[in-house]
Design a protein around this nucleic acid. Structure first.
Length: 480
RNA sequence: GCUCCCGUAGUGUAGUCCGGCCAAUCAUUUCGGCCUCUCGAGCCGAGGACUCGGGUUCAAAUCCCGGCGGGAGCACCA
């Protein structure tokens, strides 16, 4: 096991490009609309990794500005995010909340208005977009400083409504990149905020709050997905106005999991409609859901670090993560028999024994055997039952049977080289929560009772599962 | 449409900056074989790639130009 880690660490280390400069200060900026999911984990792991390798400092900044109608900050998300980060082994040295720093943004925003670098614009979103497309300046751009400050105060006071006015920075309405033309710095929102309530009516957009905070909090390196590259330019533009030193930017490409599209926005809604059964529902791919399934944080980190800082847009199958996880849990997961969709058959003929002894782990005899008491019936999986009527199969670790529609006639005890399946005599009802949210019912051997919540085991021929409720016998399916 | 980014085997990834040591790395997947009373693990082996076309050069995955393909931004979201 240690060898595995050493080998892998070395490999990965050589893969991340070196940082320029010493003593890096970096940050993670989650938006608290829900727990971190597997996509957000990349941001956290890369930052953490860089900081640890270079003895730097990592700052957790909740990017909790007011968001949008579709994307609202959620009170529970703050702790869910911390919880996820801790599980991932990400260590941070400071925490900040943007919602606590509003006065700072106002201060610098007002400076830009005073120097004529920004202006209050009352164009409708539609007009703003049209002018942006055409590269035309609107009439508000030439307001006087006094006029700008007057309108700014009105915005702050709350006498204006949502959508009435915004603060825009003067870049160049003919800038070759239409996305860069006079971007919006502040806007009005009257939605209540989970931390500061309705104290503020004017909220900064991310480009501005970041330009200010990345400087004020002493950031030396900024890691972000390449979908945010335009923010680099915006931040640099603003830093230049204030004559601030530039931080270094590093980007990584877009990552998608084949099994689901990373859209955190839907989850809030689905949760409300009871389409999901909590933030750890496997369909959310939240860190909590992965933990529940028995995915090891080391496996996830390794999975993420494998992509390095590549700028390529990638779509990865979850099986890649599972392969990493299997490597970690296979040795420690004890084995049990679980029969999905059980079919009951009578056991007939001469059994030379009334118990079966089966190793808890095939590669580690020291863990001893589990014992199954054999009676007059056994339960076997429907799939194998249907496929093998009329054939001879082996009840693993017990005996060979000739299978008919209603019974299995014992043919011999010897370990024959035929299909071996798992089976249970009197089993316990067990529910398996599958990654797609469905639930599979079946019977698990009685020895399941010796398991505690949180334990990861393998149901032989079925897959790895983690016990999530030892009373009700519920397990979460990890992977094969 | 405009701006920017990317393009190495099925999937990821190393190599691209500073051309030769790359008949191209590693992981996973796939296919054989061995082992194993699991469709798990392990062991051995095999297969499989430089998006295309030009150019520069003694020499190009690596540099230049163009095409094609994919992605992102052009939100009063982050």
């Amino acid at each position: 096991m240690p060898e595995y880690f050493e080998k892998n660490e070395a490999e990965v280390t050589s893969r991340l490009p070196e940082l320029k400069g010493d003593d890096p200060v970096m940050r993670m900026a989650p938006y608290p609309s829900g727990p971190l999911h597997i996509g957000n984990a990349r941001m956290a792991v890369l930052n953490d990794e860089y900081v640890k390798r270079n003895n730097g400092k990592l700052i957790l900044v909740y990017d909790d500005t007011i968001g949008s109608e579709q994307k609202k900050p959620l009170p529970d998300a703050y702790d869910l995010i911390k919880d996820g980060l801790e599980w991932l082994g990400v260590e941070w040295h400071e925490v900040h909340y943007k919602s606590e720093r509003m006065e700072i943004y106002y201060e610098y925003g007002e400076k830009l208005l005073s120097t004529g670098e920004a202006y209050v614009c009352e164009c409708s979103p539609k007009k703003l977009r049209e002018y942006r497309e055409k590269g035309v300046e609107c009439e508000h751009r030439t307001r006087t400083t006094e006029d700008n400050l007057k309108h700014w105060k009105a915005m702050l006071k709350g006498v204006l409504d949502e959508g009435d006015a915004v603060v825009r920075i003067k870049t160049d309405m003919e800038h070759p990149n239409p996305a860069f033309r006079d971007r919006v710095l502040f806007r009005i929102s009257k939605s209540p905020h989970p931390l500061v309530g309705e104290k503020y009516h004017v909220w900064p957009l991310l480009e501005f709050s970041w330009a200010v905070d990345d400087h004020l909090l002493g950031m030396t390196h900024i890691l972000r997905g390449k979908d945010l590259v335009i923010e680099d330019e915006m931040e640099k533009f603003i830093w230049d106005i204030f004559h601030w030193k530039h931080a270094e930017f590093l980007h990584y490409g877009m990552l998608r999991l084949k099994e689901f599209k990373l859209s955190k926005s839907d989850f809030q809604k689905k949760l409300k409609n009871n389409e999901l059964c909590g933030w750890d529902d496997p369909r959310t791919w939240s860190l909590q859901s992965l933990r529940k399934r028995g995915i090891q944080p080391e496996a996830l980190r390794d999975f993420i670090l494998d992509f390095g800082m590549s700028l390529t847009d990638i779509e990865v199958p979850a099986s890649k993560l599972y392969a990493k996880n299997r490597e970690l849990i296979d040795a420690r997961a004890n084995r049990y028999y679980f029969v999905p969709e059980p079919v009951t058959i009578a056991l007939e003929g001469e059994l030379e024994t009334d118990i079966a002894e089966i190793p808890r782990h095939p590669d580690d005899p020291k863990r001893g055997n589990r014992v199954l008491e054999v009676g007059k019936i056994v339960h076997i999986p429907r799939k194998e039952y249907e496929e093998n009527i009329g054939k001879e199969i082996r009840l693993k670790n017990l005996c060979n049977i000739q299978l008919s529609e209603t019974k299995g006639t014992v043919t011999s005890m010897e370990n024959k080289d035929i299909l071996k399946i798992q089976w249970v005599p009197e089993g316990i009802e067990c529910i398996v929560e599958m990654p797609d949210g469905s639930r599979e019912q079946g019977l698990v051997e009685r020895n399941f009772n010796e398991l505690k919540e949180g334990e990861i085991v393998q149901f032989e021929r079925y897959g790895f599962v983690r016990v999530i409720d030892e009373e009700l016998n519920i397990v979460a399916f990890a992977h094969r």
